[in-house]
């Protein structure tokens, strides 16, 4: 048998199990096998995508997969399908919203599910409050897009109130009315 890339005899027969398309058999000469085996380790995107593909093929039907792909984060709007393709998440809340789908992936990549290192010095505002801020920003952008400036300015006031630590929104909202530009 000849090498699939040149005329030399194929002395290496490699079965690649981690290919996203499923197992792939290659017949290579020594030089091409050396080249193949010394390939740069895949980029993070590639490794996330292939780890996901591998994990998703196990024990899930097509319908289940399609449903998972449609699942969207209520805070940033990213779908699981988009994450699967890009290898990047949309916001911190995705780790909560997609938790059950992400955990097998995390354990696959890191062989662990629990952080054991440094934590921020100051007490962070609750994750819910941070997620609320992201959601408000998105709603504000959408309002601006459909030229509903009144709604956009209301949301901006809510955001300012949230940032100043005043959840009631009332006073800060009234105060910031005047700085409309």
């Amino acid at each position: 048998m000849k090498c699939q890339h040149c005329e030399k005899p194929a002395t290496f027969h490699i079965t690649e199990l981690t290919d996203p398309e499923g197992p792939k058999v290659m017949h290579l000469c020594e030089d091409h096998a050396r080249g193949f085996l010394s390939q740069e380790s895949p980029s993070p995107i590639a490794s996330v995508a292939s780890a996901l593909a591998k994990q998703l093929k196990l024990g899930q039907t097509k319908e289940e997969l399609a449903e998972l792909d449609r699942k969207a984060c209520p805070v940033c709007g990213i779908t699981f399908y988009e994450f699967r393709n890009a290898g990047r998440l949309g916001c911190p809340y995705d780790y909560t919203h997609f938790q059950s789908d992400l955990e097998p992936l995390l354990s696959n990549i890191h062989d662990s599910l629990e952080h054991h290192g440094k934590r921020p010095k100051r007490a962070a505002p609750t994750a819910d409050r941070q997620a609320h801020a992201i959601q408000l920003r998105r709603e504000m952008d959408e309002a601006v897009e459909r030229e509903d400036y009144e709604r956009a300015s209301e949301i901006r006031d809510q955001l300012l109130a949230l940032e100043s630590g005043d959840d009631s929104g009332g006073a800060a909202a009234a105060a910031s009315e005047s700085e409309e530009d």
């Binding site: 993070p44 996330v48 995390l106 952080h115 054991h116 290192g117």
Partner: peptide
Amino acid sequence: VHPKYGYLTACPTNVGT
């Protein structure tokens, strides 16, 4: 930051530390 996963990152390959 997530109580269980530590510092959150855009790519799950960087999460934790």
